[in-house]
Design a protein around this nucleic acid. Structure first.
Lengths: 140, 140
DNA sequence: ATAAAGCCGACAATTATTGTCGGCTTTTAA
DNA sequence: TTAAAAGCCGACAATAATTGTCGGCTTTAT
């Protein structure tokens, strides 16, 4: 089965969670102009994701500049960009390394391999789909 | 990395090999009206695929009615259908079980999960691409 | 009759995924 | 100013999936 890892599934869930809470004009916003943040603890509880695993996932998303962290008490994470600027491709490729269906460079037969091109074609098609879907689309 | 298994990669290579040799009017065809067959040994040598592994892969393709086997000396395999009727989706889903990116049924949150629909959407898109590509397209 | 080949199930090695843990640093709030 | 909350980080462990091997059986052309 071609499958999306739990890591990406959890990552998307977390990102959707943050996206849903991205624009908050309510009283929970800590200070004017500052983003409301959510701790890993809260997200893991709300989304039913193992805490330690989620922490690692979010760290990875931070390294890829999709979220930002705020340290210390009352700290947490928030989206680094507006949800319309974050695509599924951004999230998945951050977490999976890259969205590459096959690695034909390892194969040696690369040059003469008929099959190679078709995998690349499929990969391109998949990436196009992933790029077209933005976080914003999921939270309407 | 979302990836296609070696099994599917090898499987496609073997199927392409058989497809290339599907219409043979040459003297190697054993008898008029009978398909020329290729042993696992030959395919594995020509394609650089581990013999035992390939045998298992082709057995699986046979169970899914994509190839047919001919037993005994001078036996081997041949495509069960014309290359234009065999799609990438046929091959991949035979070997991967199914082309399902996520299994949201295991999750429990299935009902209320925003992310679920997007994975299904991507899965549908991928399957559409796989269905559109036929073996015939690869061997022009 | 024998050897080539398909066919089949069990198993083994390796790698990837999934998850845990401990300890450090930063920062807020008391 | 200090304790606790939380981010941050690397190492490790458990589990599962992939990849591959092996032995033995059956079928069939020569």
């Amino acid at each position: 089965m071609i499958k999306i890892s739990k890591k990406s599934q959890y990552g998307l869930r977390a990102m959707v969670f943050l996206a849903k809470n991205y624009n908050l004009a309510d009283g929970l916003q800590t200070q004017a102009g500052k983003r409301r943040v959510f701790s890993v603890k809260i997200i893991s509880e709300k989304e039913g994701i193992p805490f330690d695993f989620l922490e690692k996932i979010i760290s990875q998303l931070e390294r890829e500049k999709l979220v930002k962290g705020k340290k210390g008490v009352q700290g947490g994470y928030f989206l680094a960009k507006t949800p319309i600027k974050i695509s599924l491709a951004d999230i998945v490729s951050s977490l999976e390394g890259k969205t590459s269906l096959v690695d034909c460079n390892l194969c040696g037969r690369s040059k003469k391999c008929i099959s190679k091109n078709v995998w690349i074609k499929i990969e391109n098609s998949l990436n196009k789909t992933l790029r077209a879907i933005k976080l914003k689309d999921l939270i309407k």
